[in-house]
Write a protein that binds this DNA or RNA. Structure first.
Lengths: 341, 341
DNA sequence: TTGAAAGCGCTAACAA
DNA sequence: TTGTTAGCGCTTTCAA
C-alpha cells in the first residue's frame, strides 16, 4: 500500500516540488505581480508535472471574490431558455465570469430554495427569469448587495434592473395584426400554467386589444402536459369542432401552433384563407414546416447578451450608471398563416 | 451615509444577535448535533430576522466537503441533454448533492477547460458525456480521486464507470430492421460533426450490418448548421433527385428525419411504401407529426437517473462495489415509416 | 522580485 | 447541551 491516499494537491506541494515559496507559486498561477521568467517556468513545470488543479474554494474565501453569475430559469426543456443561456455564455466568455444555472420548474418556492442555495456561494451577480418572486426571494436579492437582472419581462418593477420584452404589448400587437387582416372570430389556446406570468400577460394584452375593437375571444382552451405538437393537433381539432365558424387561432407558443397547423392541413382547411394561425416565440427549430407560422420572436439571445453585459459592467464598476429597464422590441413575422389573400 | 456598506452577514452576526456561540449557531443552521429547542428557536429567529445566508465557500473549505456534482455536456440546445439533466436532477434532489452544468460545444479543448474549471471547485463527483476526451482531461479525472461517470455511450473503456447505450449496436439493429422489411437501396443523412462520436459509431454499426448482407449505402450526405427541420427537407429533396431509386432514408437524428418526412409527404411520395424513413432519438417533441417516425430511443432520462444514482452511491460509500458499465437497451419504434405493407 | 504573517468564514475535534 | 481552539488552502498586505 502506497501513501497515495488521494489527498488533493495543494499550493504547498507545488511549492515544494519547485523550490519556490507558496506565495510566488500563487502569483505565477494567477499571472499576478512580477515574477522572473525563470521562476515562472519552474513553477509552471512543477504544477503541470504534478497535475495540480487550484482550489477555488480556498481562493474565493481568501480573496472574497467569486467569479460566478447565478442564472435562475424555470426550465431547460423549453428551448427559450437554452437560447437565453447561449447569449449569456457568449458574453461572459469574454470576461472572468462564469454562469451557473439553477432551475425552478416554474415553482416560486423552488425558486426561493434555488436562490438561497446559489446566494450561499456568494456569486458576483444574479440573472433571474421573470419579475414575480416570493417576498423572501426579493428580500434575499435586495440584501445580497450584488447586481441583479430580471429577464424576459418588463411589465412590472424590477428589483435592480430588467431586460426583456413587454408581453402585454406583444399580445396587443398580435391582436391588432389579426384584426387588421379582417379576422373576427378568434380562438385562443395556451398552457394551463397559472405561474407562467408571461403567457398570462400576453393573453391579457391580447384580449384587451381585441376589446378595444369590440371583439371578444370566441373560444379558449388551456392544456397541460404531453407533447406540445400532438396536443396542438388535438385541441385544435376539438376547438374547431366546437365552433366551426372560428377564423383565427392564437396559440401561446409555436410548438402547439405547429400542431394546430398540421391538423388544419390534414383536415383540408385553407390556411390562412379559412383559418389564420399565430404562435409566439419564433423558434427557429420549426423553420421547415409546410407553411411558415406567424409568430413574434421573444428576443431570447439578445436578452441573454444584454443581461450578461449589465452584470459584467456592474461587476467591473459597481457604481456604473446604467438604464434600469431595457425593453426590447419583439419582431412580428406574418409568415404564411396570417395574411388573408 | 449609514455604516451599511453591505458587508455580507456572517455567523458571528447571528451569534451576537442571538446571544449564542457561533458554533451552536452553526449547529442549528445545519441541523447537526443536539441543540435545545429553546436555543434552536432563538437562533433561527435571529438568522431569519437578519436575513442571513450561510457562506458555503467557507463551509466547504472547513469541512472539506462540496456537495456539487459537475455535469459536463456538449450542448443545451440539443433536447437530448436537458432530458438527461432532468433525470440527474430528479435523483440528486433526494440527496444533499446538487448538479452544476458545464457546456463544451462539442469541442475537446473546451471540455478540458470546463473540466479544469469545475474540478477547481472540488465537486463530489463528475458526470461527463462521452468516452472520448483529451489526454489531459482523462489525467485530471483520474487524478481527482472522485467518482466519474461517463454517459451516453458504452462503446469504449470508461475512466471509472459508464452508463449509456451502444451506438454501434443501435446502428446495427436499425440496419437489420430496415433490411428485414425488404428495403435495399439506402441513403444516409447526418450532421457533419467529426466530433460527434456517437453519431459516427451509429453510422459505423449501420454500414457494418448492411455489409453483412452485402448491402452498401447508396448515397450519403452530411450537413451542418441551420434549422434541422428545414435542412432535412432540403437535403432529402436533393438526395432523392440525385438517386430517385432510393427506397430508404436513414437520418442521424429525428429532427432532420422529420424534415425529410415533411418533404416526402409534400412531394407525394408514398411513405413507407415507396420510401421508408428512420431517425434516431425518440424525441417526444415530435409526436404529432403526420406519421410517426421510426426511431430508436436513446434512454436519455434513464441514463441521467442511473448516472446520478451511481454518483450518489459512491459519495455515500466510496468503496461500494458497483458495475463499471451499465449498458441500457434502446427501444426500436417502427412507427409508420418503417413497415412495408 | 520574493517571502512571511495574518486571516477569509466556517466546521471538526475536543473540552467543559 | 454548549463553548473553545485550531485549522481548511488560499490571497492580501507588508516587509525584505
Amino acid at each position: 500500500m502506497t501513501s497515495d491516499d488521494h489527498r488533493p494537491l495543494t499550493l504547498r506541494d507545488v511549492s515544494e516540488a519547485s523550490g519556490v515559496s507558496e506565495m510566488t507559486v500563487s502569483r505565477v498561477l494567477r499571472n499576478r505581480g512580477d515574477v522572473s521568467q525563470a521562476t515562472r517556468e519552474k513553477v509552471l513545470e512543477a504544477a503541470k508535472a504534478l497535475g495540480y488543479v487550484p482550489n477555488k474554494i480556498a481562493g474565493a474565501l481568501a480573496s472574497q471574490r467569486v467569479n460566478l453569475v447565478a442564472v435562475i430559469i424555470p426550465s431547460l426543456r423549453n428551448m427559450v431558455f437554452p437560447e437565453v443561456m447561449s447569449g449569456i455564455s457568449r458574453v461572459l466568455e469574454e470576461t472572468e465570469l462564469q454562469p451557473v444555472v439553477g432551475v425552478t420548474d416554474y415553482l416560486p418556492e423552488k425558486e426561493e430554495r434555488v436562490l438561497y442555495e446559489m446566494l450561499s456561494w456568494r456569486p458576483s451577480g444574479v440573472i433571474v427569469a421573470g419579475l414575480e418572486h416570493t417576498d423572501a426571494s426579493r428580500a434575499m436579492l435586495k440584501a445580497s448587495g450584488i447586481p441583479v437582472v430580471e429577464i424576459m419581462d418588463t411589465d412590472g418593477t424590477p428589483i435592480d434592473s430588467a431586460v426583456g420584452i413587454s408581453h402585454r404589448r406583444a399580445g396587443r400587437e398580435m391582436a391588432r395584426a389579426i384584426l387588421k387582416q379582417g379576422y373576427q372570430r378568434i380562438g385562443f389556446m395556451g398552457t394551463k400554467m397559472p405561474l407562467d406570468h408571461r403567457a398570462r400577460k400576453r393573453f391579457e394584452g391580447f384580449t384587451e386589444a381585441l376589446a378595444k375593437d369590440g371583439v371578444e375571444i370566441a373560444e379558449h382552451e388551456f392544456y397541460s402536459g404531453g407533447s406540445a405538437l400532438a396536443k396542438g393537433r388535438e385541441i385544435t381539432k376539438a376547438m374547431l369542432e366546437r365552433d366551426p365558424e372560428l377564423d383565427f387561432l392564437y396559440y401561446s407558443n409555436d410548438m402547439i401552433a405547429a400542431g394546430g397547423l398540421l391538423h388544419c392541413l390534414d383536415a383540408g382547411i385553407d390556411v390562412p384563407g379559412q383559418v389564420g394561425l399565430a404562435g409566439f416565440n419564433g423558434v427557429e427549430l420549426l423553420d421547415g414546416l409546410p407553411k411558415q407560422l406567424a409568430t413574434m420572436d421573444a428576443c431570447r439571445t439578445e436578452i441573454g447578451t444584454k443581461a450578461a453585459e449589465i452584470i459584467a459592467a456592474r461587476v467591473e464598476n459597481p457604481n456604473a450608471e446604467l438604464e434600469k429597464v431595457v425593453e426590447l422590441t419583439p419582431k412580428l413575422t406574418l409568415g404564411d398563416t396570417l395574411r388573408r389573400r
